[in-house]
């Protein structure tokens, strides 16, 4: 069994009448010579770490982070005090995604999905919806399998690192994974899953990787919240019947070719974009100086 294209996976689901989650679990079980039960158990561990990183990130004041400190803590407090707008779901998505991304910047334990720089998107978007829908852990694990399938398909056809494809390959793919997972959890069809994934990625195509001072902090942490909310946009567009027009596989191909056209300076080298603004350069110099003194 292969897991390299959305087209192939959709055809297989049609043929076997199995769910996308079951097919992804079977793929992995075959690949690793284990059972689908074992795969689901392992995915449960992933879910546990995601929840752990949300809780850690909500408390984290950013001790180990260089520049971005306490974003999860700040947004969580603001939410509890009623200072955020947009309704409980959007507010939770912002808090959860920032908490996980902040925990990552603080050398905390997280689940890379697909990367560490974009680790807040999937848990940040999916878990608030799961809480709203009162989904069981089994259902969440199945939607994580769907997300993993979408990510694996993306990685088979295109880049998933900022150095190769820019931020679109990280937060863009993460947002596609989250959109598909949410569509699945909310009982969308197989077609809906990939329509939502495609729209989510399309919305973030072209996004460059220009981290200030080479850190996974500015603008990475806040982009996690942006990409997480974007997933929900993509799912709602899909449920309203808005087509993606360009199928998922072709969208990934577009992402890949955009990545190739993207200048080296905008692919995780900190030689362009926000990194080389006057303020970006100043922040870098200050940190280098501090680091030299510590060494």
């Amino acid at each position: 069994m292969e897991l390299t294209t959305a087209k192939g996976l959709l055809e297989q689901a049609e043929l076997t009448k199995k769910s996308i989650a079951d097919l992804v679990a079977e793929y992995e079980a075959f690949l690793t010579n284990t059972t689908v039960e074992h795969i689901r158990l392992k995915m449960g561990e992933i879910l546990g770490t995601m929840r752990f990183s949300i809780e850690e990130g909500k408390k984290d004041a950013g001790k180990f982070a260089h520049l971005a400190k306490g974003y999860g803590l700040k947004t969580n407090e603001a939410r509890l005090q009623g200072n955020l707008i947009g309704g409980p779901i959007i507010e939770k998505i912002i808090v959860y995604s920032l908490a996980v991304a902040q925990s990552n910047a603080s050398l905390g334990r997280i689940v890379a999905c697909p990367t560490a720089g974009s680790c807040g998107v999937l848990p940040g978007a999916l878990l608030p919806i799961a809480e709203e829908l009162q989904a069981s852990d089994e259902e969440i694990i199945d939607s994580l399998l769907v997300a993993a399938g979408i990510g694996t398909i993306s990685a088979s056809q295109g880049p998933i690192s900022g150095a190769e494809g820019g931020c679109q390959a990280e937060t863009g793919v993460a947002s596609a994974m989250a959109a598909g997972a949410i569509a699945y959890l909310a009982k969308g069809s197989n077609h809906d899953i990939f329509n939502a994934a495609s729209l989510a990625l399309q919305n973030l195509l072209g996004l460059v990787c220009d981290p200030v001072a080479g850190l996974v902090e500015i603008p990475c942490i806040t982009r996690n919240a942006g990409a997480a909310v974007n997933s929900l946009v993509a799912v709602n567009l899909t449920f309203a019947g808005v087509p993606c027009h360009i199928p998922f596989d072709e969208t990934v191909q577009a992402m890949k070719s955009i990545g190739r056209l993207m200048d080296f300076s905008l692919r995780e080298t900190s030689q362009g974009g926000l990194a080389t603004t006057p303020t970006g350069k100043r922040l870098y110099q200050e940190l280098r100086e501090k680091h030299r003194l510590e060494d």
Binding site: I46, S103, S106, L107, G117, G151
Partner: peptide
């Protein structure tokens, strides 16, 4: 892809 469980940041 959905993993590894790791210590940050990248």
């Amino acid at each position: 892809i959905l993993g590894p469980i790791m210590v940050g940041p990248s």
